[in-house]
Write a protein that binds this DNA or RNA. Structure first.
Lengths: 204, 204
DNA sequence: ATATTTATTAACCAATTAGTTAAACTAAAT
DNA sequence: ATTTAGTTTAACTAATTGGTTAATAAATAT
């Protein structure tokens, strides 16, 4: 019987690397810290992943592959735009409350190395806006929503959902919230954000 | 006559440090690269700023002090909420197109060190939401806008405005835009975003 | 049982990096 | 002219860091 991911060395390394890379970034992460956290010798990192760069890429692809399916709620679901927005906001916020380091990690590392996303784009399953754009055009034609550029709407939706996790320290400071109040605030956004967006686009 | 900031060594160091820290972050920045960019000996960095940490803090405070006044458009201006939102969106986007590294730098470094913002908060001139909240309550009472929590509205406004600069690589990849198309896209947001927000909150 | 492959470790290495030092240079003050 | 204080440099240092190696242990195949 093959050992489960969190029992075998390779999986333990990946888990530890995820922790360290996601909280400290590529430049701030130390191979020794990853090894210590995994409870193994530093040489094992290179035995299984060859270099820091390759270990990092394994972690990054793993993280990105968690994020991409979330987008399917809004991109490739067959429901109405209103339902897409409601479901996405709910699902995405719930998911990110469980993985709060994820958005910042991805954004940060993509900004550090712009070419990196090109590699990801070649992958099948990279999020595609085609169906979403059709739906937007469709609902505009039907007079259900106001005219709006689909790309702009898409960016507005993800901006409103992702930003609270990127800008957490800023939000806490500006709005004078402690950790608990911040959590409540994000919890409320699960419905607040979709109402806001739907109000913004619906035909008066 | 005192030498101007970009002629004297201290100023040249700060300019070079700004470049390097803002594009590579604290961990990715190298003192040697800063010295090279400033065209001086590395020892000068320590002569004027003592340590990497202190040089970094000088750059960070400088960057933050550019950002804070932008927020006054929305926080402490006396005009209507609608005008505040219009003006802020226009001003902020224009400003950030000139300083595209700034948002990511600040967000990233605040996430790396959450305590850092506490120091900033002690400073006078740290953005305060009091007046903005009063204005929101006021316009809700007058029946001009729909009921909404002022903190939520504030976060929505800054999310929609800041995110395009944080998530630039992601947006370019998802919406299949090259640099030029992205620039046009952001340019259009100068009016798009304020319309979107005003639609979302105005009384039907 | 024994050979062979796979997994693991301790010790080491070369390169990088923030920071220091001591000497030299410059310009203003005496 | 000479002292003095501030500025700048080249060379150095100590610590850190990603990565390697050679020996050993464990598991698997013959």
């Amino acid at each position: 019987m093959k050992k489960s991911k969190d029992e075998n060395t390779e999986g333990q390394i990946l888990d530890a690397a995820k922790d360290v890379f996601q909280s400290k970034g590529m430049d701030g992460a130390r191979m020794q810290e990853i090894a210590d956290k995994a409870g193994i010798n530093k040489a094992m990192l290179h035995y299984y992943y060859r270099s820091k760069q390759l270990l990092f890429e394994a972690v990054f692809k793993n993280a990105f592959s968690l994020l991409a399916p979330q987008l399917n709620t809004i991109l490739n679901d067959d429901s109405s735009l209103e339902d897409k927005i409601k479901n996405f906001t709910m699902d995405y916020t719930t998911f990110m409350m469980k993985h709060p380091y994820l958005p910042n990690f991805i954004i940060q590392e993509l900004n550090r190395n712009e070419d990196f996303i090109l590699k990801l784009k070649e992958n099948t399953g990279f999020p595609n806006l085609k169906k979403f754009k059709e739906k937007v055009a469709d609902e505009i034609n039907q007079g259900l929503i106001q005219p709006i550029d689909a790309d702009q709407l898409f960016v507005n939706i993800i901006a409103l959902n992702i930003f609270p996790f990127l800008g957490k320290p800023l939000i806490k400071a500006f709005t004078d919230k402690d950790e608990k109040a911040y959590k409540t605030f994000v919890e409320e956004r699960k419905t607040e954000v979709s109402n806001f967006i739907i109000n913004a686009i619906k035909k008066q």
